[in-house]
Write a protein that binds this DNA or RNA. Structure first.
Lengths: 149, 149
DNA sequence: TTTCATGTAACTTCAATTATTACAATTCGA
DNA sequence: TCGAATTGTAATAATTGAAGTTACATGAAA
């Protein structure tokens, strides 16, 4: 199964944008993420719809973060992407007549719902600002290692 | 993304087998699960490797449960199926050089690992016997409803 | 007015599960 | 012993959804 990596992608893009002063073009983001500008526009467009980023056409155009880094959670980003299916495992038939299959679905659905709830709760506690701090720490460590060697 | 429904499938199959006296053929299981006998063989073959079911060729052949229903957990079945990826969401690049992406991966990996651990812990607490009981309850309810109306 | 950039539709590629076909191997019953 | 029933398995196609690509229209700034 091909995994949906859009959440990972937009986080990567947003943190790079946070490091920049002005707008960043789709072309630049695409290069730094080894992907295609059109894919960037498509995905970032979803974030624009909920006001997390803004875009401008023409010269000096590109993408800009339009919200406070501390106010944007992973959960909001997940929702902005259309709340894609979290699990790669699922029921064969969501509305079976067979009572055996109903019993199976019920147990599996409960377990998956519990795990998804935990994941989304955790997503609520992480903001872009948190990630920026984490990146800054890694960057400082990296500089230190480079100085020593 | 196409979801892996083999866990759901084998549970369905195993509970149907538990209701039966003798062996059940791949053909019968395939019909009751709206799938193909070869798919059944392929999937059940994985369960046979860990001793949960046994198979016999020829006349009067087919599949039989080889373990105690109370001793087989969802977790064991998940493992027997090769521990397929639980999540449909993942990182774009698992071993990035980019420090930004490393920070992103780290946060996401932690969150997913936590949710997966919860899911598997829950899978450990559910046995085939539990599911059989749940099915029996549903069956009794269904009979009652039918008698009333 | 030219160039740079987004916006978007249409289509192709890609990866993974699932389905199908074909046939070999085995076992039981008549 | 023969033959039908059944599993075992390789090879291949269908399916599905994300990701990638092409093409072109639109808009803004130099």
């Amino acid at each position: 199964m091909k995994r949906d990596s859009r959440l990972s992608s937009v986080l990567h893009a947003l943190l790079h944008m946070a490091e920049q002063d002005g707008p960043v073009t789709s072309e630049t983001l695409a290069q730094c993420m080894n992907t295609n500008p059109v894919v960037v526009r498509r995905t970032m467009g979803l974030l624009r719809e909920v006001g997390i980023v803004s875009s401008a056409k023409g010269h000096t155009g590109g993408w800009t973060i339009a919200a406070d880094l501390g106010a944007v959670t992973l959960r909001q980003l997940h929702e902005a992407l259309g709340e894609p299916a979290v699990f790669a495992i699922g029921n064969r038939n969501e509305t079976p007549e067979c009572l055996v299959e109903q019993a199976v679905n019920s147990v599996l659905d409960d377990a998956f719902a519990e795990a998804e709830a935990l994941l989304l709760k955790r997503f609520e506690t992480v903001t872009l600002a948190d990630l920026a701090v984490d990146f800054a720490r890694r960057h400082a460590e990296w500089r230190e290692r480079r100085t020593i060697s």
